[in-house]
């Protein structure tokens, strides 16, 4: 099995990297097999971004390092990043929608997170 974290990353440095041929340049595609894109810088709510040729308007800020769906993802489908499964969708996710603890669960141990850093609510996904 190839090392999914190296092959795509080699393309990154010093080269124009973008979210694939048909996605916004602020979104990073780490492996062709992925169904998520990663923000290379914060993208503000209300901004229009191209995702696989379709224009999507962001409902909320997408911070640096956060993910959105590259294409529609079914409930129960694996989330694939670096070419490897990183969890399972708990509900249907539309193309361009954020992919995070509210719609993904670990296949190993639950994720401990604070729902809102300011409010301090806790949750497990």
């Amino acid at each position: 099995m190839p090392l999914p974290d190296h092959e795509p990353l080699q393309q990154l440095g010093g080269q124009p990297s973008d979210g694939g041929e048909r996605s916004d340049a602020r979104l990073l595609l780490l492996s062709e097999a992925d169904n998520v894109l990663v923000a290379r810088s914060r993208i503000r709510a209300g901004e229009a971004v191209a995702v696989e040729g379709t224009t999507v308007t962001l409902a909320a800020d997408l911070p640096l390092g956060h993910k959105l769906a590259r294409r529609p993802i079914r409930a129960g489908e694996k989330i694939v990043k670096y070419g490897a499964p990183i969890g399972t969708a708990t509900k249907a996710i539309a193309a361009g929608a954020p992919v995070h603890v509210h719609n993904v669960k670990s296949d190993y141990t639950p994720t401990y997170h604070l729902m809102d850093a300011a409010g301090g609510k806790e949750g497990r996904a």
Binding site: V38, A39, P63, L64, G65, H66, K67, I79, A84, P85, I86, G87, V99, H100, V101, V104, K105, S106, D107, Y108, T109, T111, Y112, H113, L114, A117, A125
Partner: peptide, 12 residues
Amino acid sequence: AGNAEGGLTTIE
């Protein structure tokens, strides 16, 4: 908790 705030969703 900070891992999730930074965009990481699962341990995998």
